[in-house]
Amino acid sequence: MSIFINRETRLLVQGITGRDGSFHARQMIGYGTKVVAGVTPGKGDQLFEGVVPVFNTVAEAVQETGANTTVIYVPAAVAAAAIFEAADAGLALLVCITEGIPVLDMTLVMSYVSERGARLIGPNCPGLISPGQSKVGIIPGNICAPGRIGVVSRSGTLTYEIIHQLTGQGYGQSTCVGIGGDPIIGTNFIHCLSAFEADPDTDAIVMIGEIGGTDEQQAAEFVSRAVTKPVIGFIAGQTAPPGRRMGHAGAIISGSSGTAAEKMQALATHGIGVMKRPADVVPLLRERL
């Protein structure tokens, strides 16, 4: 098994005829993802690569093809609109790769998406992959291998580095999820940890965080309360300089400075194995499995 996506995933690509959308649609098809439809308004009569039907609207695409998941590659200026449309069409899983969506737009998007019972992953994320089953997004398929480690990360290329270390040393992955680095994201560490805990085919979880916010601290607290599987974690930004922070609201709302040291401490306190560098991932997993 896996979390969020698997062999049954029927994928729709919003922005399939665009530069990024078309490139990654080909990669996903090549990986074996069931790409069943594309959407580009005004190109509703085309066939992408001669096989994938393109529709003018998401609703039409869902109705005609039974798509249950969408991945969004449209430009930032229209990305919030694309998420609204996908949520309205009744899709269960929305994955938004696009970066640069204004955070105030995301406050509106999140109310809309959660009221319709959909799950959003991202925005500003690399998407997810259940190796050997389905890839939704931009994580390079060739660095992954099927297996029993769950990976959840706020980062993009750093996630690839960790997956590369895992695969290279014989640890395949059940699912790797890039949750995105924006202040407002649809799926957070806790959602993923909870899903991995419930997944019978995941034995251990690697979480990759970074400086800023308090998501990692809350996730660590959740792990000590609700996760029985071994968890190890990495926090990027140990050498990041203290910012020239303006205003006080950030510190007041989070009650935290969001430094790597504070986060690593929280991970350790809650029984999570703390990696000092990416290469520690496999040795730490071996200790705990």
Partner: peptide, 24 residues
Amino acid sequence: LEGTVGCCVNGAGLAMATMDLVKY
């Protein structure tokens, strides 16, 4: 920053992890 290793990386997370490793 004030150090001597000029870093050129793709991605913010990997860039931070690279800086951390330089220090390590």
